[in-house]
C-alpha cells in the first residue's frame, strides 16, 4: 500500500490532488501546513510527498528542510507551486524536493511521475 501525503493549506488543491491520486488507487493523507506534515511523517513516514510552497506556519521549503533533516526513511517529494519562476525551483530542489510542478498539475503528468517514483498503486 503506497501512502502519499498531500501538504497544502488550500482545501481545493488538497481535494484536487486527493481525487487524482485516490482514483489511481493510492492511499492519501493530508496536512494543512508543514508542522502538521512533520508530525504525520514522524508518526509514520510516507512513500511520497506532494507539497505546496506557500503555507502558513511552516511553508513548503521549511517543511522539506525539516523533513530531510529527520532520521526517518526519506521518500521523494514533488513540489507543487503557482510560481513558474526558476529561482523558486532552485529553492525547492535545494530544500529537498525531487520534482517541481506548476499548478494546476495535469492529472496525467502527476500520475506518470507518481508511478515512476513509487510504482503503480495496484
Amino acid at each position: 500500500m503506497k501512502r502519499i501525503l498531500i501538504v497544502d493549506d488550500a482545501a481545493t488543491v488538497r481535494m484536487y490532488h486527493r481525487n487524482i491520486l485516490e482514483a489511481a488507487g493510492y492511499t492519501v493523507e493530508e496536512a494543512v501546513n508543514g508542522i502538521e506534515a512533520i508530525e504525520k511523517s514522524l508518526h509514520q513516514p510516507f512513500d511520497l510527498y506532494v507539497v505546496d510552497i506557500n503555507m502558513p506556519k511552516l511553508d513548503g521549503y521549511g517543511f522539506l528542510r525539516e523533513l530531510r533533516a529527520l532520521d526517518i526513511p526519506q521518500a521523494p517529494a514533488i513540489m507543487v507551486s503557482t510560481e513558474a519562476d526558476s529561482s523558486d525551483q532552485v529553492r525547492a530542489y535545494a530544500a529537498g524536493a525531487n520534482a517541481y510542478h506548476i499548478k494546476p498539475v495535469k492529472p496525467g503528468q502527476l500520475l506518470t511521475q507518481v508511478k515512476l517514483l513509487v510504482g503503480a498503486a495496484r
Partner: peptide, 21 residues
C-alpha cells in the same frame, strides 16, 4: 547543488529513493 549542512544526508537519501523508483 551546494551542500546543505542540515539536511544534506536526507536530500541524498531522497534522491536515491527517487532514482530507485
Amino acid at each position: 547543488l551546494p551542500r546543505e549542512a542540515g539536511w544534506q544526508p536526507g536530500r541524498i537519501k531522497a534522491v536515491a529513493a527517487t532514482l530507485a523508483g
